[in-house]
């Protein structure tokens, strides 16, 4: 965001301080001071000064530009989604080292990928981000009654806190339909390292899982991430 005569207000996701805002003096006027180092989706080592609510950027050194994100539209759109969700799940000024590490890992996967990001990578990111923020949906047993997640009619309930048994899914009109295999797949994604290849579950299953998890995530954030619509658009074309 532009600020004053020549400055810029940056939103930074940091390892030590979580999400912070800092003023970059002269960032708009000077072509040299921070040139090429304040672009989005880059890992930058920064030196800041001032109190936490009025930080000023003194130096920025580019450590990893994740240039591969600029070569593929789907990767760039997914990077925007990863960054927006991570920022939304990071309270201002509170260190979230797991989310910070997850963002770096996700951006590296997206930048190095030869093709569009797999739906599994995006679902695994969403699950791990929710977990890191203490909002992990129930996947082992019904979130409402603790019963088994088996049979037809399982659902994924934003209000209920995750996967719910057929009885509780039927009672919740906002629950998204899932199969036991979908729940098993999401559980595996949540536990495996990010980006670990998995057997393809098919387009229909990917759509169900994406819809269920995004609805859950939107409910936790209290809004739909602005970058989600563009990501969905480019992933479908």
């Amino acid at each position: 965001m532009d600020y004053g005569e020549a400055d810029r207000i940056l939103t930074l996701l940091t390892r030590e301080m979580g999400r912070i805002s800092a003023r970059a003096p002269g960032a708009r006027r000077s072509q040299k001071r921070f040139a090429g180092r304040l672009d989005r989706f880059a890992l930058v080592a920064v030196r800041l000064s001032g109190p936490p609510h009025r930080l000023t950027l003194l130096e920025a050194e580019l450590e990893e530009p994740f240039l591969g994100l600029r070569d593929r539209l789907e990767s760039s759109a997914a990077a925007a989604y990863v960054v927006e969700v991570s920022a939304a799940l990071s309270p201002e000024g509170e260190a979230q080292p797991r989310i910070f590490g997850l963002v770096l890992e996700a951006l590296a996967h997206l930048a190095e990928a030869d093709g569009p990001p797999s739906p599994d990578l995006l679902r695994a990111f969403e699950l791990k981000a929710l977990d890191a923020a203490g909002l992990m949906p129930a996947l082992d047993a019904c979130a409402a009654c603790g019963g088994p997640l088996a049979g037809e009619g399982i659902g994924f309930s934003p209000a209920g806190g995750g996967a719910v048994c057929p009885d509780h899914a039927a009672a919740d009109p906002a629950a998204s339909p899932l199969s036991p295999a979908d729940v098993h797949h999401l559980r595996a994604l949540a536990r495996a390292p990010l980006g670990e290849p998995r057997a393809d579950v098919g387009r229909a299953a990917h759509r169900r899982q994406a819809s269920a998890l995004r609805t859950f995530l939107d409910a936790q954030l209290g809004r739909r991430p602005r970058s989600a619509a563009f990501l969905e658009q480019v992933m479908e074309t």
């Binding site: 672009d39 989005r40 989706f41 994100l69 600029r70 070569d71 593929r72 760039s76």
Partner: peptide, 14 residues
């Protein structure tokens, strides 16, 4: 040649 400009170029090329 920013992230936004590159994404726009990729989108238009498509």
């Amino acid at each position: 040649p920013t992230v936004e400009g590159e994404a726009t170029a990729l989108y238009l090329a498509r």
